[in-house]
Nucleic acid binder design. Structure first.
Length: 175
DNA sequence: CGGACGATCCCCT
DNA sequence: GGGGATCGTCCGC
């Protein structure tokens, strides 16, 4: 598939939105390791998301895969994304993208440049107009998500997810 | 088309 | 003990 939307996360104490913000833990250890490897995390009790480690060992950094257009294996992707209402929705959103690829937590740490879970191909030239903006569902310092405009997407691509700002989750009173 | 809300579990403190 | 880099459904326009 063809990536259309990503977000960058740095950590190292300066990026509150990053899972590596508070230092190395068992969960985010992969982000402190070799670049080009897959960092997966589980969130909201049901979703898995995929990142590509992007900084040298010792420096935590990664890119969250947020959107993509499925080019090959359409039948397989559709079978895994039964709730999708159209091919543009197959990998529109980080959890959908991971599901369409068949990524699970067990794939964390896979060497993508070696094709362990899937192969990451980097384009040699620009593939379109790239736009940038605040990251989705993340609040920066002082609640200002725009402090780190590290969301990148292809302008006008139908497989780019719609922006959602960070919302305070409402607690459910236990009866 | 877009806003509101519940679901559900792994991981850190 | 509680938060969370989301999604799907419901509902109104």
């Amino acid at each position: 598939m063809r990536l259309t939307e990503v977000e960058a996360y740095q950590g190292q104490g300066e990026d509150p939105g990053s899972h590596a913000h508070r230092g190395r833990t068992a969960r985010n250890a992969v982000m402190f390791g070799e670049p080009g490897h897959l960092y997966t995390y589980f969130t909201y009790g049901m979703h898995t998301c995929a990142n590509v480690v992007c900084l040298p060992p010792g420096s935590a950094g990664g890119v969250l895969l947020r959107g993509a257009e499925v080019l090959d294996g359409l039948e397989l992707a559709r079978s895994r994304r039964t709730t999708s209402r159209g091919d543009a929705d197959l990998a529109r959103g980080p959890a959908r993208l991971a599901l369409a690829l068949g990524i699970t937590l067990d794939d964390g740490g896979a060497d993508l440049l070696a094709g362990d879970a899937f192969t990451l191909d980097l384009a040699d030239e620009p593939v379109g107009t790239v736009r940038t903006g605040p990251r989705t569902g993340v609040s920066g310092p002082g609640g200002d998500a725009a402090a780190y405009p590290w969301r990148f997407w292809l302008e006008g691509d139908p497989t780019v997810s719609s922006y959602r700002s960070a919302v305070a989750r409402r607690r459910v009173a236990k009866a």
